[in-house]
Structures are given as C-alpha cells and as structure tokens.
C-alpha cells in the first residue's frame, strides 16, 4: 500500500475540504429542491407570509396608530361609525370589518400567530413522533406494542369533542392548541409512519456494524436510526403545519379558541354579522376572501415545500 501512514495530516486543508464537500451536498440538495419546481413556489409563499406578518409590529411601531389599526380594539373615527364594514380605501387597503377594524391589520396579526402555531405544533409533534417511532421500532416487543396502542388511541381520539368540552371548562389558548396537536401528531399517525421507516433502518447492516464497534442502544438509536428517519420526519412536518393551521382556523371559526384574532375569527365575524349570505357575499368580498386566501396560501405554501422536499428525500432513499 501507499506508504503515507506516518505523514502528518494537513488540518487546514482538511477543514477546507470538509467545508467544500458540505456546501456541495447542500448545493446538490438545493438543486433537487429547485428541480421539483413546486418546492421553490411553496418556499416563496412561506417566505412572503413570514415577511408579511413580521412587518406588522414594525408598521404598528412606526407608521400605524394602534388606536386605529389594532386588530381587535382599533377603530377609525374618520370613517363614519355607521358606514362599517367599509370597502377598501387608501388608509384601509382591504377595508374594515363590521366593527370598523382594519382587515389588513387583522390578517397580518393572524397570519403571524398562525405560522407560529403551525411551526410549533408540527415541529414538536414530528420531533416527538421521530423519537417515539425510532424507540418503538428499535426495542420492539412490549415497548413497541405500548406505543402502537397509544397511537391507535390517538387516531381514534375524539379530539374535536374534547376541545369543545375543554373550551367550555377553560380558555384554550394557541399554545395549548399547539401542544395538543403536537401530542396528537407525536403519538399518533406520524409516529406510526416514522416507526415503519425506523423498522427498515433497524435491520440495516450498518446497525450491526455499530453494534460490533461497541455502540450502545442509545448510540444506535441516536446516531444511526434517527438520522435516517429525520428526512422523512421533516417531510411530514411540512404536511403537519398545514394540518395545524387548518385546524386552528376551523376551531377559531367555531369559536372554540380563546385567541384575540385569527383568520378563522375574521371569517366567523363576517358570518355571524350576516355578510356571507346571497349577493352580499360578492359585495362584501373583502370580509372573507382575503382571510380565506391567506389560509389557503399558507397551507399550500407548506404543502408545496413538503412536495419539493419529497424530491430531495426520496430519491436518496430509493438510491440504495
């Protein structure tokens, strides 16, 4: 063999090489993501709404008077109190609702909270599902049985009824909803899907190789099973965000949530004040269409990102 064994490694060159190969991997994945076409569109939508909702506090601090533009307590005295809801004007690009509140402000406020809710619920849920799935698959036997029965319960769980009951007893906040959804995802369907992925990883010879090298159960789960489940987890996270945001909108519309303002509440206000009936639907489009569009677009955005990631994750899994 080539006798370079005694040669000292050039650490600086190694660092550079590691960085070069790391960025190359990133670039390759990015290319696959872009190649999916649908992924970048989704990413664009998500970024737009992140900027959209992040700019709200800035507007409020700099140009907008909170007395007028607060999503809940705002009121524009320049407009006649009786003329609300008011169609779009320069000062209210999406008009005002029946109480004279600026609809654009409501949208910006709500989409920010919905994004946070979606990401927290999906992130925590999928992280939990990854751990549950990996542990259940790795240990098998009674551990597996336990988690799978829990998953069955979660799937059959009458969560809407529970939320209704819960909202009667206490104020269900966004964070509580996020935790609730995270538990449902973490121990429910997603954990079943990720477990079956972990089962495939568990029997790979590299797990045996780690075992020969003295790796503990923890080591094997953490550095061999979880990393091979994570890409799929990430994919499911994108789809879970969509589910969480949709759930929030539906629950807010039904009035089961204790939140200041939400996309669901905007539509509900239009509904309860009787503007979603017959020809008024068209006349008062600004009361429901923008909110509906924002819900749909945010959900579509995350869904498209998920589809784009599918291109990145799955060819690699199929490759070997």
């Amino acid at each position: 063999m080539v006798d370079t064994a005694s040669q000292q490694v050039d650490r600086a060159a190694m660092r550079r090489e590691r960085w070069r190969l790391f960025t190359r991997t990133l670039r390759d994945n990015w290319r696959l993501f872009v190649g999916s076409k649908i992924g970048p569109i989704g990413l664009g939508i998500v970024i737009f709404f992140v900027l959209f909702s992040a700019s709200y506090p800035i507007f409020m601090a700099v140009t907008h008077n909170p007395r007028i533009y607060d999503p809940v307590t705002g009121f524009d005295y320049d407009l006649m109190p009786t003329s609300n809801p008011h169609p779009p004007t320069w000062s209210h690009p999406l008009g005002t609702d029946v109480y004279g509140r600026d609809i654009l402000s409501q949208l910006m406020y709500s989409s920010g909270h919905d994004l946070l809710l979606g990401l927290i619920a999906a992130g925590a849920g999928v992280l939990l599902a990854t751990l549950v799935g990996s542990i259940a698959a790795f240990y098998g036997g009674i551990v597996d049985m336990f988690f799978m029965r829990v998953a069955d319960i979660m799937m059959l769980f009458p969560f809407l009824a529970t939320l209704v009951a819960l909202s009667a007893l206490m104020n269900v906040s966004l964070l509580m909803l996020a935790i609730f959804l995270a538990i449902l995802t973490g121990f429910g369907t997603t954990s079943i899907i990720l477990r079956s992925q972990a089962l495939q990883v568990k029997v790979k010879p590299f797990v045996e190789a780690a075992r020969v090298s003295g790796g503990s159960n923890f080591h094997i789960i953490w550095s061999h099973i979880v990393p091979n489940v994570l890409p799929l987890s990430f994919l499911y996270m994108m789809f879970s965000v969509t589910g969480a945001i949709f759930t929030e909108a539906a629950l807010a519309f039904l009035g089961f949530l204790n939140v200041r303002m939400s996309l669901g509440i905007i539509i509900q206000n239009a509904n309860t004040s009787g503007y979603l009936i017959g020809t008024r639907l068209a006349t008062y489009w600004y009361m429901w269409l923008p909110a509906g569009a924002v819900i749909s677009l945010i959900c579509a955005g995350f869904y498209f990102v998920g589809r784009g990631l599918d291109e990145v994750v799955n060819p690699r899994l199929r490759e070997r």
Binding site: R18, E208, A209, A210, S223, N228
Partner: peptide
C-alpha cells in the same frame, strides 16, 4: 472487529467516511 460482506449496506448513508471510520474510536 468485523469487515462486513456487503459494503453498500454496512455504512450509514448519512455519515461521512470520517464518521464511519472514527465510530469505533469514538464509541
């Protein structure tokens, strides 16, 4: 130690060669 029969499946596809070769040392 063992040198496995199948060099395709006996390496974690998400690890670099450094991680793979250093694993016994790290463990």
């Amino acid at each position: 130690q063992m040198i496995f029969q199948d060099p395709y499946e006996s390496m974690n596809p998400r690890k670099t060669l450094y991680d793979i070769i250093a694993e016994p040392l790290a463990v």
